[in-house]
Nucleic acid binder design. Sequence first.
DNA 1: TTATAAGGTCACCACTTGGTGACTTTTAAT
DNA 2: ATTAAAAGTCACCAAGTGGTGACCTTATAA
Lengths: 209, 209
Amino acid sequence: METNPLTNRARDKNKSKQQFLDAVGTILRSKGHTALKVNNIAATAGLDKKLIYKYFGSTEQLIDEYIHSQDFWSNVTGDLVPKKITDGGKDFLKRMLLEQFEFVSQNKALQKVLLWSLSEERKSLQKLIDDQEANGEILLKGISDPHFGDKASDHRAVMAILVAGLYYLNLFTEVNGSHFCGIDLKTEEGRSKIRQATTFLVEQTYSSM
Amino acid sequence: METNPLTNRARDKNKSKQQFLDAVGTILRSKGHTALKVNNIAATAGLDKKLIYKYFGSTEQLIDEYIHSQDFWSNVTGDLVPKKITDGGKDFLKRMLLEQFEFVSQNKALQKVLLWSLSEERKSLQKLIDDQEANGEILLKGISDPHFGDKASDHRAVMAILVAGLYYLNLFTEVNGSHFCGIDLKTEEGRSKIRQATTFLVEQTYSSM
DNA sequence: TTATAAGGTCACCACTTGGTGACTTTTAAT
DNA sequence: ATTAAAAGTCACCAAGTGGTGACCTTATAA
């Protein structure tokens, strides 16, 4: 009896492929994209590197497949968009920024990918960035642009600084000393100050722009 | 007659050392820190790599000496501090942020160093960051902290987000697509929006925090 | 002029890199 | 049981890495 559509053989192959993809994730999280070398990946996966070429064509393709397989933004964009917006999206954007700040802080793979995308050009990374940009476009266009009218692009510039700033602070915290403008980003107190400042800036933008 | 304290021999050595240091800068600006390999550096300098070990001890020490030799922040911190401050430093901080935004944008070596400092730990980079942090500490402590009183740390958190945001936007522009939150960072128009938003946010912080 | 110290070159080393051809082992259909 | 296809291993390659010993060359001081 064989209810399973996959033969044992195919299952082995898929399992091995997954081991390689997992290895890429493990290495990326721990050592960053510069450590993604064939030998390293094969050793981490516990399989021969020849299989990488057999199953993925090349190391590059394996890495690209890993990138595509990950939905780095799911927890952020999964963020439910409220049906009724009465405050011009102020509360929604505030929550989105704070959740993103927290999410990036806890997602090491995403941090490494952000850093990677600042370090080298790569189609699959470019696509990732473009997708996220398109995603944000929907939110901005549908929620805050109407509220800000002809000031829409001014509001977008503020959002750009905030999003970028929260990204950078999270990346900065991982490597160097924790202090940035005197704020200790490794303490809950410091991070709380950043969250408050974010809230404050969004508030101000809605009340005075 | 020998008025020059340096013999021709010593001059040759110093010239060669400088060629290596220049090569490090050239490579860093064009390919980033990951391209800083001995063979590459020697080829760019047009000299034998053996000399690197003779003059600097190791490739790492040459690189460190390059980092120490550069005063990456000079143009920013050289920014004259006004003697009389009547607005709590609002105008000064605004100008500092905008100048920094422009300076980083035009200084490729600094961009690569910022990226480097997000990518790996390295004593000489750490020192660079610490120095800059100490420098900012003086300005914040002396200028804006007194104005904000018990809200000083809240103001610092805002500054952290702004500085970090402007850094990130500059790094982002170099590699990936130019759009961030719909703002085209490669156009003067887009960059102008970012400058206006920066000004707006500083204004708001001073008027409402 | 000659000795010597220092600048500079070159061949070479061990090791790591990405990648492949030849091989063995296993599974599943005949 | 035989066989063919596919999973998986291993030894090997060429190119590049950081680094060094032996050498040549040149300036300068005796």
